[in-house]
Design a protein around this nucleic acid. Sequence first.
DNA 1: CTCGTTTTGTTCTCCCGTTCACAAACTCCT
DNA 2: AGGAGTTTGTGAACGGGAGAACAAAACGAG
Lengths: 224, 224
Amino acid sequence: MTARTPDSARDIPEATVARLPVYLRALISLAEEGITTCSSEELAAFAGVNSAKLRKDLSYLGSYGTRGVGYDVEYLRYQIAREIGVTQDWPVVIVGIGNLGHALANYSGFRSRGFRVVALLDADPDRHEEVVAGLEVRSFEDLESIVAEHDVSIGVIATPAVAAQSVADRMVATGITSILNFAPTVLSVPDGVGVRKVDLSIELQILAYHEQRKSVAPGAGAVS
Amino acid sequence: MTARTPDSARDIPEATVARLPVYLRALISLAEEGITTCSSEELAAFAGVNSAKLRKDLSYLGSYGTRGVGYDVEYLRYQIAREIGVTQDWPVVIVGIGNLGHALANYSGFRSRGFRVVALLDADPDRHEEVVAGLEVRSFEDLESIVAEHDVSIGVIATPAVAAQSVADRMVATGITSILNFAPTVLSVPDGVGVRKVDLSIELQILAYHEQRKSVAPGAGAVS
DNA sequence: CTCGTTTTGTTCTCCCGTTCACAAACTCCT
DNA sequence: AGGAGTTTGTGAACGGGAGAACAAAACGAG
């Protein structure tokens, strides 16, 4: 048994971090249904994971359950939100207002989960008059002043692949330290800058691989 | 040394499958630059992975390199494409033509990587006149006939969260066996149906977690 | 107060994936 | 032909995560 560190500074495994948002979403759903208490079994079913895994994940945050009873939905919800850091609001800039940028700007899930889009930037001057999701599309040149003004640390790249690396470089130069990349390119950034990528066609290709396997050898397992 | 199985029927680790599309993209880039041969070191740098990992990944497909020389770009490109299954065309239906559905329908990366969007479906009759990306938006009720006509096995869900499960159920009932889910919900599907999910706000929340950590304890590592 | 029931938190084991390190194999130069 | 230099393919060590299983803790009944 290690020393108790009730406040912070534990190291949570990356796999667990990736699941915490799922648990948070499940807890919000439960709260909306008026459920105030739930067992690890119930919550795990809601989140689509094994209950042992759920308990182990939560144990990294602390001891927030009651044995024999379960978890208080509202309390656990707050604790996870605090751990992730979405009790505060994170300002976000989106660069590249094409089809995908449009969709992201209008996506209500960002706002409702602690993220506020403060600016939409595009290199194409033809788009600069346009108003998307209540925000005027501005020049990419304004990146630095916007980041400084709103203290932005998270940037979203929704540009074509060829532009992505230079946009990332510029973002890093202005002080952004977390990047969500939708462009189908591998970004190279300095140490200390976090990058996550979402590649739409890669996901489809993974599905295609398993699909092809099914038709050849019937007996393939699950995918995810 | 195990028996050679030159044709198919090896089991490729899931982690490797997820990287094959990245290698494929890197090879296409190299081919466009006129490069005909590359070492594992070069290709790995291009794909953003360790060269040892790359070689091990490729070794699951077979021995397609030449020691002392490297890999033939065009040959390896074809082998990976064949292994994934993107030498043929996969018909795809998209359900839910909101902001995100629009963006997906217009995304050129699908077509160029072996996927062909054959239909756009939406439950809202107000959208049924609209033409998006050269396709008329049709009623969700047409799902069954479209799937049958085009022999569709891959479906994309871009609906609001509340509708996603019922859409998935209907897809499965019509014979679709692979689903790419953009709705922020856990889908439950029968065994044998593959599901992959893309959750935009979860990715941001993971970034937020690490971002928060940086400001508290300066010395956090990379993200992924 | 005591016992049985429920459910968490944690330990232990197994498996998958990553990385190192090196032998095998190929090219090129002399 | 032979040796030096490269680069692949893979065996082996290593680390992290998943799941089973159980002890510890809370609650309720009698």
